[in-house]
Design a protein around this nucleic acid. Structure first.
Lengths: 115, 115
DNA sequence: TCCTTGTATGCATATATGCGCATACCTTTA
DNA sequence: TAAAGGTATGCGCATATATGCATACAAGGA
């Protein structure tokens, strides 16, 4: 029973995942967690952001199911739930790189100030 | 010469691409364009959105370099610039599907109203 | 040149997002 | 149980985003 509204609901969830990636700080957080699961405050320190900002970003990522956490003593360790998120980010970064490169090539070829 | 601020700038561009995907309507637009490049108003009609909304979404996608357009008579044909965007979307949708499935499995196993 | 079709945009508005600050909350340990 | 480390959150604010409506623009045909 696939209704149009069901499709739309899934598309909204799809967009929710994308919007979780739509912030520079969260992107940095995700790559950092890929390297090393860690707790809120050390993450905040590493990335040079406030503790509250880190907490909120992680909370959002948890709500979206992209990050999960387990208690370890007095701190809470956060980790990625699915490496495919990183794969997707890498793909998108590759797209970005291609664009930057071709733009650079244009500048090379056309010295008369592009646009 | 890789400065921290350069890294940050790239991360911001990375996030810009992600945020282009962070809207249900735009996701539908991208999948529709993958199937068939098309002009603003037919896209609007197919997706059941207003012409102005379609125009603005396409404009944003163009600014981000995800969509490009060429004039064809009186209409403007829009098309994807890079199929990897779709790959990334598919990856993220797969992540979503996994989560929905495992959540469903939990409901199966645990009939005492989850959470 | 005027009209039609197709597209972009200014305006107003409702909503969402990110952040710092201060503070409340939860665990563990002394 | 009190103190300390670590985490979450209410509040206020500045900013960004999405949308409809009406309208300005652009290109092709009569």
């Amino acid at each position: 029973m696939i209704t149009p509204s069901l499709t739309q609901e899934i598309t909204e969830l799809h967009a929710d995942i994308c919007s979780a990636l739509a912030d520079p700080t969260r992107i940095l957080i995700l790559y950092a967690l890929k390297e090393k699961p860690s707790n809120v405050s050390s993450l905040a320190e590493v990335l040079g952001i406030s503790q509250s900002a880190a907490s909120r970003h992680l909370n959002l990522l948890r709500e979206r199911g992209i990050v999960d956490s387990r208690r370890d003593g007095q701190s809470v360790i956060n980790y990625l739930t699915d490496e495919r998120i990183i794969e997707a980010l890498d793909l998108l970064r590759a797209v970005l790189t291609s664009k930057l490169k071709s733009r650079a090539a244009l500048v090379e070829a056309e010295p008369k100030s592009g646009q």
